[in-house]
Design a protein around this nucleic acid. Structure first.
Lengths: 136, 136
DNA sequence: CTGCATGCAAACCGTTTGCATCCCC
DNA sequence: GGGGATGCAAACGGTTTGCATGCAG
C-alpha cells in the first residue's frame, strides 16, 4: 500500500508500462515480455516479472488474479470487473459500474477486515461461440 | 456439463469426497492429498488430482479458481461467494445470498454468452489481523 | 564507489502425464 | 480378458531466485 514515490523509472520499467497501457487486453507476463522484447530485445523474462510485481505493489498497475493458471496485468487501476472466456482464456472488461457497497455486506457477514472485491464472470467469447469449442 | 451418471465410485474417490465434505475450509489439492493419505496411505498425488478434476467436471464438487497460485476445492456446489485472506491465503465462505441477476447485467454489456460469475472478496482474517502480518 | 537494476540460467512449485500394473465387470 | 483406475515418477509450464555484471547517482 505504498505510493509510487520510491520507484526508479528505468528504461525497462518505462517500456513495460507503456506497452501495458497500449493494449486493452489483459496480457500475461509472457505476453508483456513479448511486447516489450520488440523494443528491448535483450530484456530478461525475470526483469519483466520483477517489475510487473513491483509496479503492482506500488499500485501503478493491477495484477489480476483471475481463474486460469496465469496471472494477468492491467494498466487500468480503477475498480472494474472482468469476464473470462472458458474457451480460449481471454479476459475482457465488463462495462458496468462497480459496486463498492458489496464490501460492506461482506464485512457484516464475516470476521474479516474486508479490503476489496473482484467479480469475475465466465462465458464464451464471440470467437469461441462455436458449438464445437464451447466445452471445457 | 455432464451428470454424475457415469462415474465409478472407487474407494479412492469415495474417500476424497468424504474428506472434502468433512471440512469447511477450501483445501488445495495437496491438502486433500494429506487428508486422504491418512486413510489410504498408498494413494498417489496424481490420483487425487485426476479425481478432483473429474468430480469437478461432473459437478459433484466445485473447483475454485480463486486468486493465489493454487486451485482449491469445495464440496458445496451451490452458488456462494468467498473471501481470501491476503495474509495467509485461507479462503472462507461469505454468507450472503448470491446475485444471479448479475449475469444478466454482464450479458447486456458484453459480447459474451455469459455462463456465470464469482465474487471474491479479499481481506485480513482474524488470525492475521496483526499490524505486523497485515502487509503483502 | 555503492547500491539498486538487469540478464541469464538454474531452481522451484503446483499440476499433468506416460506407463506398467491392478482390479472390476 | 479388456477397459478403466491406480501408483509412481518423470515432464511440464509458469514463476521466482541467485549470481555476476552493469549502470546511475
Amino acid at each position: 500500500m505504498q505510493t509510487q514515490s520510491d520507484i526508479r523509472l528505468t528504461p525497462q520499467r518505462q517500456v513495460i508500462l507503456e506497452e501495458l497501457a497500449k493494449v486493452k487486453t489483459h496480457p500475461t507476463a509472457n505476453e508483456v515480455y513479448d511486447m516489450v522484447r520488440k523494443r528491448l530485445p535483450r530484456i530478461g523474462l525475470g526483469t519483466v516479472y520483477r517489475n510487473l510485481e513491483l509496479m503492482a505493489d506500488n499500485g501503478m498497475i493491477l495484477k489480476l488474479e483471475v481463474g486460469g493458471s496465469q496471472k494477468r496485468f492491467d494498466a487500468t487501476t480503477d475498480l472494474h470487473y472482468h469476464i473470462r472466456c472458458t474457451g480460449c482464456g481471454r479476459v475482457d472488461d465488463i462495462q458496468f459500474s462497480a459496486m463498492p457497497q458489496l464490501d460492506q455486506l461482506a464485512a457484516n457477514s464475516s470476521d474479516y477486515q474486508v479490503l476489496g472485491h473482484h467479480i469475475e464472470f465466465s462465458g464464451i467469447c464471440e470467437s469461441c461461440d462455436d458449438p464445437q469449442e464451447a466445452k471445457k
